[in-house]
Design a protein around this nucleic acid. Structure first.
Lengths: 164, 164
DNA sequence: TCAATATATCTTGACGTCGAGATAAAATGG
DNA sequence: CCATTTTATCTCGACGTCAAGATATATTGA
């Protein structure tokens, strides 16, 4: 009887006709996301980062040398709006973890690049982050993780399929 | 090859030694949560609400008549801090959907109650919300939803088990 | 009894996010 | 060639959230 079960039990009393299966799934996902977010933040904050700034640095890092992307490319990878990305980049630049220079190709555009300090920081932190993710997932055995991943992938495809 | 697969493919090039199963699961959960949040907001905004205010109204509604709880009880149900709850209640009160009165039992405490308008609004919107949840989950068949729910419940138990 | 501690709620300041709009430059098409 | 449309980025104001701290009241235990 976890928290979500208690919520469902209340609705069964107040609205016995409700079809609650999806509510259970979505409720557990939401609740789990809260716990996982807190778990991931433990590593981020140990490096003076948060999920937002880590996300940008990691996106630059995994794009490969020279660890440079435009704000638009970063927006595509991270699912945030342009105002949000500008704010993230401002803070990372103030921390000395990235720099911005005008693009040679397109005068409207900007190139965001990891600084040497930014590269060092993401190299260290991402290793800890991956270990932390595996720790957080360890409540499920490898088979269960595979099963879960398959179901999530199928569901996600409904939103990210090539045709929308 | 969804968005998360592309991220994993990049890491495999840059860090072939990373154990990426948990990253896949967490990444898909995160991405899915973003899409689901947007899907749920469509119903909320049709009623002049957002996820935060809906959450409070729904918690009061499913607690049963007289649809009254203290801010502390609401905090327990919704997993938010006291400052957040104060802010939510201020806005709901300004909208005329709840009222606050001093507790008879405990002079430190407050009783939050749905107004008649608040009750009408949550009664209408929660019905649409449940249908919307089932619509969003329909990419998985009932069996898959059950399977997913079982895995999520097991995982969630690691965070919400009686002993921590 | 009453001082120390715990509880309930609110306040404040900082931050991350979004949406709408501004600005500038590039691409398009007649 | 030039007007129109699209693209890239930034600005601004509003909002939701949190952490830390303030205030008032209740509970505990010596």
């Amino acid at each position: 009887m976890d928290h979500v079960d208690k919520i469902l039990a209340q609705w069964r009393v107040e609205h016995p006709e409700f079809k609650l299966r999806a509510m259970g799934v979505l409720g557990r996902m939401s609740r789990l996301t809260t716990h996982l977010t807190q778990g991931l933040d433990q590593v981020f904050s140990a490096y003076g980062l948060n999920a937002a700034s880590f996300d940008v640095l990691a996106t630059l890092r995994r794009s490969g040398a020279p660890y440079a992307l435009t704000p638009s490319q970063l927006m595509d990878w991270t699912m945030v709006t342009s105002g949000t990305m500008t704010n993230r980049l401002d803070r990372l630049q103030a921390q000395g973890l990235i720099d911005r220079k005008k693009s040679d190709q397109d005068a409207r555009s900007v190139v965001v690049q990891l600084t040497p300090q930014g590269l060092d920081l993401i190299n260290d932190s991402v290793t800890k982050h991956v270990a932390n993710q595996n720790r957080l997932a360890a409540a499920l055995n490898p088979e269960e993780q595979e099963q879960l991943d398959r179901l999530l992938a199928k569901w996600l495809a409904a939103f990210e399929a090539p045709e929308g």
